[in-house]
Amino acid sequence: MTSINGDRSDLVRRMEITKEIRFAMVRRFRKMNNSDQLFISGLSLLIVITSMVSIVFSDDFSSKQVSAIGVFSVSISIYIIMLNYEFSKRDFERKILQIDQSASKIHDIYVELKNESSRKL
């Protein structure tokens, strides 16, 4: 009987560790996803600012300067498209959902086993 209780308490301990690790992974993936989105937003804002500068100050710039600003904006736009493609391949939203669901299921089983163990004591 002691062996079964020992196995059960070991299982409960391992489930608790697994649950905590999965919830930590979800937090890390969310942080990475948010930083990716923030970076893309910052680059998009940079494009808007350079476009506004070229429009507002077009009379003060030479045609070469306006062309340089245009090339810079197009280059950043292409870079954003490539980053969006790379970030979408990571598929953080799906991973976050799957890991969160599995951690929640583990948590439910963990609570059930913990309650069952405490009732037997």
Rank of each mutant, 00 (worst) to 15 (best):
L38Y: 08
I4M: 06
R90N: 07
I109H: 00
I78K: 12
V53A: 10
K89V: 03
K105C: 00
I80N: 09
I99R: 07
I81Y: 14
Q101C: 06
Y79C: 13
V71S: 11
R13M: 15
I69C: 15
V111R: 13
R90Q: 14
S77M: 14
G70C: 05
D10W: 08
G6A: 14
M52R: 05
A103F: 00
S73H: 08
M25F: 03
R119S: 07
L121E: 11
I4T: 12
M15T: 01
S62Q: 00
K89E: 09
M1D: 13
I81N: 08
I69K: 06
R8Y: 05
V12F: 01
I78F: 13
I4E: 09
K105H: 01
L46S: 11
D100E: 15
I96R: 05
I69N: 11
L46R: 02
G6P: 05
K95V: 07
S41D: 08
S63C: 00
D108K: 07
K89P: 03
E20R: 11
L97R: 14
R28P: 01
S9F: 09
I47R: 06
F23R: 04
M25Y: 00
A68N: 15
L46W: 09
Y110S: 01
G70Q: 09
S118W: 08
S73W: 07
S58V: 04
D59K: 04
Q65R: 04
L97Q: 14
V26M: 02
A103H: 01
S3E: 12
Q65E: 07
V56P: 02
I69L: 15
Y110N: 02
K120G: 01
T18M: 13
D100P: 02
L45N: 10
I49Y: 07
L11T: 12
I4D: 06
T2K: 15
F87E: 06
M82V: 15
D36H: 13
R22E: 03
N33W: 15
F39D: 08
T50E: 13
M52H: 00
Q65Y: 08
S117V: 02
L45S: 13
F72N: 03
K31S: 12
E116Q: 01
S9C: 06
T2R: 14
V53M: 05
S102T: 09
S67P: 02
K120I: 12
I109F: 00
R94C: 03
R119Q: 13
E112H: 04
G70Y: 12
F39C: 09
D60H: 08
S117D: 10
L45R: 06
M25I: 00
S51L: 05
S67C: 14
